[in-house]
């Protein structure tokens, strides 16, 4: 355990700044997003075709019923289960809920989850080796590509993440109460590469 982790209360979020190896460029950059609206979208029974059509019509999104990200410039749908998506957009939570309600009507159940997760982008030259210590999913570029998503167990914590680009960068949705523990696990895993925690995390 590095110094910071032995002194930091387990309930605190890792503070912004450099953690682990301090020399050279950071191997991993963690960037919390505080202004992202998030909602779950669950299709009613037999309504996946209808939801897919509506998504295309309202958002221009070709919705995949799979662990994939379907997105346009201002909204993303991340498959988390059959007929089930996490929707993210850079706007107010109420505004996203209103747009989704307009688009899907009673064909789907919607719930605001904007406060439910710590949304965290991870990237940097050592992001691959660092995530190999945390994520039990094969992230090799031949297997997991931009637009792929996975709900899985990281350091005993359930969470969802998806790949944003082939730099590579990943976006993690970490249940809010697990965020301190996740960041501790991240700090341990990234210690050898150096972690730059961009702040502030608690929005």
């Amino acid at each position: 355990m590095s110094e910071i982790l032995s002194d930091l209360p387990v309930t605190d979020l890792l503070p912004p700044g450099r953690h682990g190896r301090a020399d050279g460029a950071p191997g991993v950059i963690a960037h919390p997003l505080s202004r992202l609206a998030v909602a779950t979208l669950v299709a009613c029974k037999g309504a996946v075709p209808r939801i897919t059509e509506a998504a295309l019509a309202a958002f221009g999104v070709a919705l995949a019923d799979a662990p994939k990200v379907s997105f346009t410039a201002d909204i993303a749908f991340i498959g988390t289960g059959p007929g089930r998506w996490l929707v993210t957009a850079s706007q107010a939570p109420e505004a996203l809920m209103a747009r989704l309600t307009d688009a899907f009507g009673d064909g789907a159940a919607l719930t605001d989850q904007s406060d439910a997760n710590l949304m965290l982008d991870l990237y940097g030259p050592a992001v691959g080796e660092t995530l190999a210590k945390l994520v039990p999913v094969d992230l090799d570029p031949s297997v997991f590509r931009p637009g792929d998503a996975a709900a899985t167990l990281v350091a005993l914590m359930p969470l969802t993440f998806w790949q944003l680009n082939d730099s590579p960068a990943y976006r993690f949705a970490i249940p809010r109460s697990f965020a301190p523990a996740f960041l501790r696990a991240l700090a341990s895993a990234a210690a050898s590469a150096g972690l730059e925690m961009a702040g502030p995390a608690r929005g």
Binding site: V42, A43, C44, K45, G46, V48, D65, G81, P82, G83
Partner: peptide, 12 residues
């Protein structure tokens, strides 16, 4: 297979 019986798993 999905326990709900449907190929898509769209139980709901």
């Amino acid at each position: 297979t999905f326990a709900s019986g449907s190929a898509s798993g769209d139980a709901s």
